[in-house]
């Protein structure tokens, strides 16, 4: 990548461009860039680092505000939040919801993308537009009738209500369609001459050839589903069926003798943050590829 620095620009005016380029080899590094990066990384990361530190503290330690050393409570807050405050079931519910949404969304979108790319049929453009236009209807725009519908169907407090509204996806269909269109013509024609049927073509050719894109999409979808808050808050009232984001709200009321147990809450926050972070770390390759960031 580029070798030049903030410093070069100033040097350039004094000594001319060519000497500046030669100098980059021996520059005492780009200190301004490093300083800026370290500062911004720290500012962005500090709340989460502090949250982690506090999550290991006992209540008196937490209320000693300036104490930011790792606490003496160890992982006791985590154990407690897991066993006594329902975190285990919140996380499990979130995990089930996120996996179901991810698998269903990718599967359904793959089928739709195959139809949109490899078939020619009436109203194709209209249908594609209809799918894309759903981007304009986030949950809040249709929340009242959606809730009424779930209530009428008796789906409240079920997995169906949690996942159903997330199955169709304009983004996934759009990205998969783009990806399928980039597959070389001759591969598609070869399959056609060989008489390979659409589902076999999807399973044996398209999916293996789109592995990077599908894993990237899966991570994004998983994280998106895991982070949902408003819809679960409304459609799930039974606390044992609730997802972890709304679980954070329940945790807020936890306290002993009038003092909020922030250590416990921070432990919950760290736990809630963990699965998307793990997904991000494990799948950073395909994720960065999907974003076009891979080296």
């Amino acid at each position: 990548m580029s070798l030049d620095t903030n410093d070069i620009a100033t040097d350039v005016r004094e000594r001319g461009p060519l000497s500046a380029i030669a100098d980059t080899q021996v520059l005492p590094a780009q200190w301004r860039v490093h300083l800026g990066l370290i500062t911004s990384v720290l500012v962005m990361a500090s709340p989460l680092l502090l949250a982690f530190v506090m999550s290991t503290q006992t209540v008196p330690e937490v209320y000693d505000i300036t104490d930011i050393s790792v606490g003496t409570d160890g992982l006791a807050n985590y154990a407690e939040v897991f066993t006594r405050y329902g975190m285990a079931s919140y996380m499990f519910n979130s995990l089930v919801m996120s996996i179901v949404v991810t698998v269903a969304k990718i599967a359904v979108s793959l089928l739709a993308a195959v139809a949109l790319v490899f078939y020619d049929f009436r109203f194709k453009n209209a249908i594609f537009f209809l799918i894309l236009f759903t981007l304009m209807f986030p949950v809040p725009v249709r929340i009242v009738p959606l809730y009424e519908m779930m209530a009428a169907l008796g789906w409240t407090n079920t997995l169906l209500a949690l996942t159903g509204p997330y199955v169709a996806s304009a983004t996934a269909v759009f990205l998969l369609r783009q990806h399928f269109m980039s597959i070389p013509d001759s591969l598609v024609e070869s399959a056609k001459v060989d008489g390979v049927g659409p589902l076999r073509f999807l399973w044996k050719v398209l999916i293996p050839m789109s592995r990077g894109m599908i894993s990237g999409l899966s991570v994004i979808t998983f994280i998106y589903a895991w982070n949902q808050y408003l819809w679960p808050l409304i459609v799930v009232s039974d606390q044992s069926k609730q997802v972890v984001q709304v679980g954070m709200k329940y945790l807020q009321s936890v306290g002993n003798a009038g003092q909020t147990d922030w250590g416990l809450i921070m432990a919950g926050a760290v736990l809630t943050r963990l699965p998307p972070l793990l997904a991000l770390i494990v799948f950073r390759g395909p994720l960065l590829e999907t974003f076009g960031l891979s080296e």
Partner: peptide
């Protein structure tokens, strides 16, 4: 593109689109 003539059946296309269409109509 050349891709879109790979498969002929309109019915097939609608079947593949059915889950997506059903979901966007019902939930969106």
């Amino acid at each position: 593109g050349v891709h879109e003539n790979t498969y002929d059946s309109s019915l097939g296309a609608y079947l593949l689109l059915l889950p997506t269409l059903a979901a966007i109509i019902a939930f969106l």
